[in-house]
């Protein structure tokens, strides 16, 4: 279970560029729940994901995962519990190393890295079996440098690597946004299949309302560094893209209203 408790983060504090990226955010995700996060640009959805991944330490609050207090853990240590797929399809793999070698690195996540050979024959058979499930024909190219593959193929492999050791949590950061439509659909489908098959707990940031409706079991909507909506269970079952759009408009109108009231009061009293 992932438990985010009153997490706040301000970037560039005390300067003109001050950004209050997360404001007292609390969120609990049950084991086996696939949660999507949507929100406008700068709403803090990626920041929330990075707070869990450990890219930075929050100013306040705590993060617990699978019974560990990981708030102060460095990024590499959290990787023992967390699998990640990035927006940039080239970010998750080492381009000049082979497919098999890349997967060998993922296989040892959270374990001691010994002086035994990384790619053995038995390991390659195992890799071929699992890579075959991607249905991309990559099982015959295990010795090719991963840099020779397309963005979609690399992202699919990154996804496979992220779930190789069955992590306590899978983080997906707009992982289909930088792909062409066909590859994006393929990777989205794989995501759904793999998460269901491995019964993974997952947190996915997405720009696409359709994806948020189609893939996850639960949708969180963020705005200005805070959670403004939470669709669970039956509400999630019923929600459609137009509903989400309407909620977005409502949230933004409320904010416009707040701002105009503030402006009026300011004009009267200052």
């Amino acid at each position: 279970m992932l438990k985010i408790d009153s997490v706040s983060k301000t970037f560039h504090a005390g300067t003109v560029n001050e950004v209050r990226a997360l404001q007292d955010v609390s969120l609990s995700i049950e084991d086996g729940c696939f949660t999507g996060i949507i929100g406008t640009n700068g709403s803090g959805k990626s920041t929330l994901l990075n707070a869990v991944a450990g890219t930075f330490t929050p100013d306040a609050g705590s993060i617990h995962l699978a019974g560990h207090d990981i708030t102060r853990w460095p990024e590499y240590k959290r990787a023992a519990l967390i699998g990640r797929v990035f927006q940039d399809p080239f970010a998750g793999t080492a381009p000049d190393m082979s497919i098999a070698e890349n997967i060998a690195i993922a296989m040892k996540r959270g374990q001691h890295r010994s002086f035994g050979f990384a790619v053995t024959r038995a390991f390659k058979d195992d890799v071929a079996d699992r890579v075959r499930t991607l249905k991309m024909g990559l099982e015959d190219r295990l010795d090719n440098p991963i840099g020779t593959l397309s963005g979609g193929q690399r992202q699919a492999l990154t996804l496979l690597m992220a779930v190789w050791t069955r992590p306590k949590l899978l983080l997906l950061d707009e992982h289909t946004a930088a792909l062409d439509p066909k590859s994006a659909a393929k990777v989205a489908e794989l995501t759904k299949i793999i998460i269901a098959r491995e019964k993974l707990t997952a947190l996915m940031v997405t720009h696409s309302m359709q994806q948020a409706v189609d893939l996850p079991d639960r949708i969180i909507m963020m705005h200005r560094g805070a959670i403004v909506e939470d669709y669970q269970d039956e509400r999630k079952q019923r929600v459609r893209v137009p509903d989400l759009m309407a909620t977005f408009d409502r949230v933004q109108k409320r904010e416009l209203f707040d701002e105009s009231v503030a402006g009026m009061l300011k004009a009267q009293y200052c």
Binding site: A79, F86, A94, P95, M97, A106, R109
Partner: peptide
Amino acid sequence: SNPQMVRAQGV
């Protein structure tokens, strides 16, 4: 080759 990747893989 890719520092971000190895951090995410627990190195």
